[in-house]
């Protein structure tokens, strides 16, 4: 192909350039949206998960939920958390001035990054916060391989 090395490069289609710029800008703003402060919990309860090589700890804020009303089931690497938050029992003739707290049933299912030793799962409910410790199944733990000198 014949080329003219000294001619200034011109785009064939100026709209294509604008299009590309728009995409770049959009991507830039999407990155801002990802900042942790704008992160939104998809549903109730919000959870935090902590991990190390021996297992995971899951915490959830469940203020006012009766510990008996929380149901946790673990099958392999699937953890299911169900329960309900009861509405306040109002006496006769009482009326609400302000209502911000929600109530009702909740179900969340999580896939953990490893299978869990279901027998050793422990859950503690303290001050309205649920802590579930999920030890990793022994067979799934990473094995350390020593390199032998030849």
């Amino acid at each position: 192909m014949f080329r003219r090395p000294f001619q200034v490069y011109r785009s064939q289609n100026p709209w294509r350039e604008i299009d590309r710029m728009q995409r770049e800008m959009g991507r830039l703003f999407d990155d801002f949206g990802y900042a942790p402060r704008n992160r939104m919990a998809p549903s109730f309860p919000a959870i935090n998960v902590w991990t190390n090589e021996d297992g995971a700890v899951l915490t959830a804020e469940l203020p006012g939920v009766n510990p008996e009303d929380i149901d946790i089931s673990v099958v392999g690497e699937i953890l299911k958390l169900t329960g309900s938050r009861q509405p306040e029992e109002l006496g006769e003739g009482a009326k609400y001035h302000r209502r911000e707290r929600g109530f009702g049933k909740f179900t969340r299912t999580f896939q953990l990054p490893f299978a869990v030793e279901a027998e050793q799962v422990e859950a503690v409910f303290d001050k309205g916060i649920l802590h579930i410790s999920l030890p990793r199944a022994e067979a799934e733990k990473p094995k350390k391989i020593t390199v032998k000198a030849a």
Binding site: E61, P63, G64, A94, K95, Y96, R98, K127
Partner: peptide, 22 residues
């Protein structure tokens, strides 16, 4: 904290969600 306020014959009752507080 999220709060509910209701009123009955004797009093006003304020209920607030404060997980982690004792």
């Amino acid at each position: 904290p999220r709060a509910d306020i209701y009123e009955n014959d004797e009093s006003l009752v304020l209920v607030a969600d404060m997980p982690g507080v004792d």
